[in-house]
Amino acid sequence: MASVLEELQKDLKEVKVLLEKSTRKRVRDALTVEKNKIETEIKNKMQQQSQKKPELVDSEKPAAVVAPLTTGYTVKISNYGWDQSDKFVKIYITLTGVHQVPIENVQVHFTERSFDLLVKNLNGKNYSMIVNNLLKPISVEGSSKKVKTDTVIIILCRKKAENTRWDYLTQVEKECKEKQKPSYDNETDPSEGLMNVLKKIYEDGDDDMKQTINKAWVESREKQAKGETEF
């Protein structure tokens, strides 16, 4: 029986094939989001597996496993709050004791449509939060972070020409809510999320979009039947 990691790798292969064949922007955007999500899940699964291999002292007695403070495993941040003003969108992440770590251990990388937070060596663990496809473009130069007591604040600077209210933090969240897409559940079969995305795109698409998906799907299956892999 295939492991979760193997199933995720198969899903990633499928998405890459479809993304390569797709020519419609809407299809490519949705597939790119799914590709990033699957790659993050694979990375997390591999990190979890590497932590499950304790070093043995001898052939009979396992050694006590002590996680080095500088290389602790990474925890994915999923809980946060956010609000907005005329100039900024602020994301609030609660991390107990974060104000006590060196400021250089709190790193944030911004792009026009994403941010990536990494907090290193907080109580022997690393904490990560990656948000792609922000609802609106932001000013990278004007965006920043603040560390308060037990809290990290990500400050996204609105572009001067962009003054509309954000009803959602990301474009994916907007599409999921407005089109009632099935929510992603990490406990379910990893293939279900991908199939739901493709099914929804197909149902909502025009004839050109459906033809593109059908063609990519057939070519993907033909490659699988011939035993071609990317891993």
Rank of each mutant, 00 (worst) to 15 (best):
T111G: 14
V131T: 12
K90H: 00
V17I: 07
L95A: 01
I155K: 05
L56H: 10
L95P: 00
K215F: 12
S191A: 14
L95E: 01
K177I: 10
D207Q: 11
E228Y: 12
T71G: 05
I213M: 08
F231T: 03
E162W: 06
T212C: 05
L169N: 04
M46V: 11
T32F: 09
K145I: 15
V119H: 02
K120H: 09
G205S: 04
D185L: 13
M209G: 04
V4E: 13
Q180T: 10
K45E: 15
K160M: 05
R28L: 04
A161N: 10
E41L: 13
E112K: 11
M195C: 07
E230D: 10
L5Y: 01
G97D: 04
K174Q: 12
Y127H: 14
I213F: 01
K148P: 00
L135G: 01
D208G: 03
K159Y: 01
S143N: 12
K210C: 11
I153S: 02
D29G: 04
I38N: 00
G124W: 07
I91P: 01
E55S: 08
V66G: 00
I103N: 14
W166C: 03
K13D: 14
K76E: 15
K181P: 00
T188Q: 13
P102A: 03
K136H: 15
E20Q: 07
K35F: 04
H109V: 10
V119A: 02
K223T: 00
I153N: 02
Q224K: 10
G227R: 02
L169A: 03
T71D: 14
S3H: 06
V65W: 11
Y92I: 00
P54R: 04
D185M: 07
N132S: 11
L5K: 08
K125Y: 14
P182R: 03
E162Y: 10
Q51P: 00
V33C: 04
E203I: 12
E222K: 10
E187D: 12
